[in-house]
């Protein structure tokens, strides 16, 4: 019998005999019931692990797709014209224009509807009849959602890079995409980093919506404990503290990255 259980026994006896508990006893009851009993702390850690997994891959999907969407929205792309006669190139330009239009449509659609609805539609609609891991559904739903926000952030970053940088790259003979990847994006990333950090933190917290499709992430872990202990809010406080821990660590990491980038060009 562990020390925690030894402390618990007199309180349990008091509860059974309907003897009112002191404040300290009540506090320990909450801690024991919601964290210690039946190794419930492991439920939070498992939930945290799922939240971290989903968030990591969703951020990855969101950043890559969002950057692509941002590039498709640039004036260089939307104003792309081809006056020559090569039919393949004409089709190519038409396809690029279509994707550019779609990017705009996509961003408006995602930003204009609630994440919860998107999650429900993706789970019960798009993947309604597909046997697929809930973690993957979570990554897809949150990643697709985040991409729209990342796109606008990165677009802002791209616009903030001086036009002369593109001209310098192109005048050296670098292609448009190569100029974008080697010269413009690194500079855009730096100016977009604080806003991106906000978006990542928002995304981590928003994965809690996935509890609606029965994915046992950190919020659901709190829900689960609560459905067993009937504590009004203690499980949510434990989950909340874990979210806070994650976002604080992330903020620190990004802050460090920002300082490193700042050092690289005084």
């Amino acid at each position: 019998m562990s020390i925690f259980e030894e402390w618990w026994l007199p309180i349990e006896a008091a509860v059974n005999d309907k003897i009112p508990l002191s404040f300290g006893q009540n506090l320990y009851k909450e801690i024991y019931m919601n964290i210690i009993k039946d190794d419930r702390w492991a439920n939070y850690l498992n939930g945290l692990w799922v939240t971290l997994k989903v968030s990591f891959f969703a951020i990855l999907v969101g950043t890559l797709l969002g950057t692509l969407l941002a590039v498709l929205r640039l004036p260089e792309v939307t104003d792309l014209r081809y006056k020559g006669k090569n039919p393949l190139r004409k089709i190519g330009v038409a396809i690029v224009h279509f994707f550019s239009w779609f990017a705009k449509f996509y961003i408006d659609l995602i930003r204009g509807t609630p994440l919860l609805l998107q999650v429900l539609i993706i789970n019960f609609g798009i993947f309604g009849t597909v046997k697929i891991d809930k973690v993957i559904i979570g990554v897809i739903a949150c990643g697709l959602n985040s991409a729209a926000y990342v796109a606008e952030i990165v677009r802002g970053g791209l616009i903030s890079v001086d036009k002369g940088q593109t001209e310098a790259g192109r005048s050296l003979g670098l292609s448009g995409p190569s100029t974008m990847v080697n010269i413009i994006l690194p500079q855009a990333a730096k100016s977009a980093l604080p806003a991106l950090c906000n978006e990542f933190i928002a995304l981590i917290k928003e994965t809690s919506i996935l509890s609606y499709i029965a994915l046992t992430e950190l919020t659901k872990a709190g829900d689960y404990i609560r459905s067993r202990t009937y504590s009004a809010f203690t499980p949510y406080i434990v989950s909340g503290l874990l979210y806070l821990l994650v976002t604080i660590v992330l903020t620190k990491l990004i802050g460090r990255l920002e300082r490193r980038l700042a050092n690289s060009d005084h």
Partner: peptide, 25 residues
């Protein structure tokens, strides 16, 4: 002519700008 590969020709023409346009990163 839109069908020529402009990038290849630009490699052979250096350009210097009023505002330098060095890559700051």
């Amino acid at each position: 002519d839109p069908s020529v590969n402009l990038n290849l020709h630009r490699q052979r023409m250096g350009m210097v700008f009023q505002h330098f346009n060095l890559f700051p990163h």
